[in-house]
């Protein structure tokens, strides 16, 4: 019971952090100072929180360009996060990477990619490495329902199954690739059905309840470990905002607003807050934690706004190890 409560608290901390950081982005994006294409995680907070917590600190993760959730759930830090979004010194790559390529290698978050599905093979190779090194850990790779259209998903899945690699494939399914619905892209009814025919532990969720997602991930991880094979989990969620950018886009007509309202009624962040209170956590404790995160985010933004822009030498740094050597 104590343990469940501790997990519930940690989940909520992560989700509240993601939501608060993204609310701040929504509020300030129009100032045109965060010049980076934002693919927002809003609506998907429970997935990042649950999976990142469940895999534990020794595991690794990689993600798509929709990575604010993964980054924040994994690192719990916002200074480098906002500095990167503002293109400033002190960011995860001193402004070179931006929202689509966040990383925190020292915390096991190897990075993200804006080329759909292209991190899936990378996760597979990293899992091979973990296996070789004899680590009791997995590589979680986050990707969307559009990524499973790509051959590299299937090729990676096949390799991971054939070679029994500890990859946790996490399909964050919002039913759309940009504005094109899964129904017109997929020649099958259920990806989970198909994937489960491979030698893999497979599961599917449609809840926004982070505790349930956490339990489902743990169960899957246990099965993966017992059977010495990879895992696949498809997690349904609703993308609150437009594909890229910080606005709603229901007026575009490709998805109805009522759908959103239905999901909003079970919003992952408020759901988790309610769970905490129901489990007997004092409202004061919750409010205190929220205030702490509010202050953290506000402070990080202040730092980022005040930070200098990177200077010219950063432009060429880290292309290769012999930095600043002009190889042109």
């Amino acid at each position: 019971m104590e343990q469940t409560l501790a997990v519930a608290r940690q989940l909520y901390r992560r989700m509240y952090l993601i939501r608060t950081a993204e609310d701040a982005i929504v509020k300030r994006y129009h100032e045109n100072d965060m010049k980076t294409p934002m693919h927002m995680s809003m609506g998907a907070e429970a997935i990042a929180a649950a999976v990142c917590l469940a895999i534990g600190p020794d595991s690794l993760c990689v993600s798509s360009y929709r990575s604010h959730g993964t980054y924040l759930a994994r690192t719990l830090e916002t200074d480098r996060f906002f500095a990167e979004l503002y293109g400033k010194c002190g960011g995860t790559a001193d402004g070179r990477a931006g929202s689509m390529h966040l990383s925190a290698p020292e915390q096991g978050y190897l990075g993200g990619s804006a080329i759909v599905a292209s991190v899936i093979p990378v996760a597979t190779g990293a899992a091979f490495s973990l296996k070789r090194l004899g680590r009791d850990a997995v590589v979680a790779v986050f990707f969307g329902d559009g990524a499973i259209d790509e051959g590299s998903f299937w090729e990676s899945l096949n390799i991971a199954c054939a070679w029994r690699l500890p990859v946790l494939f996490v399909c964050e399914d919002n039913g759309f690739a940009v504005h094109t619905p899964a129904g017109v892209r997929h020649g099958y009814a259920s990806i989970t059905d198909i994937v489960s025919r491979f030698r893999i532990s497979a599961a599917e969720t449609s809840t926004t309840d982070a505790s349930l997602l956490h339990a489902a991930t743990q169960e899957l991880l246990a099965d993966m470990r017992a059977a010495q094979r990879p895992g696949f989990i498809r997690m349904h969620y609703y993308r609150y905002l437009e594909h890229v950018g910080v606005n709603e886009d229901f007026a575009a007509g490709y998805r109805p607003r009522d759908e959103y309202e239905e999901w909003l009624a079970v919003d992952p962040v408020t759901t988790q807050r309610t769970r905490l209170l129901e489990a007997g956590v004092a409202e004061d404790w919750v409010a205190e934690m929220e205030r702490g995160i509010d202050a953290q985010v506000a402070h990080s933004i202040e730092l980022a706004v005040a930070a200098p822009f990177p200077d010219e030498c950063i432009l060429f740094r880290d292309v290769m190890t012999n930095e600043n050597v002009d190889i042109s």
Binding site: K35, T36, E84, G87, K88, A93, D94, G95, R96, A97, G98, S99, H101, F309, P310, E312, I314, L315, F316, V319, D326, I327, S328
Partner: peptide, 16 residues
């Protein structure tokens, strides 16, 4: 282009 990867940060983009 400058012989490096296109950076995100606006002032660096200008240099690229």
């Amino acid at each position: 282009f400058a012989f490096t990867h296109c950076p995100c940060s606006r002032p660096l983009e200008n240099l690229f």
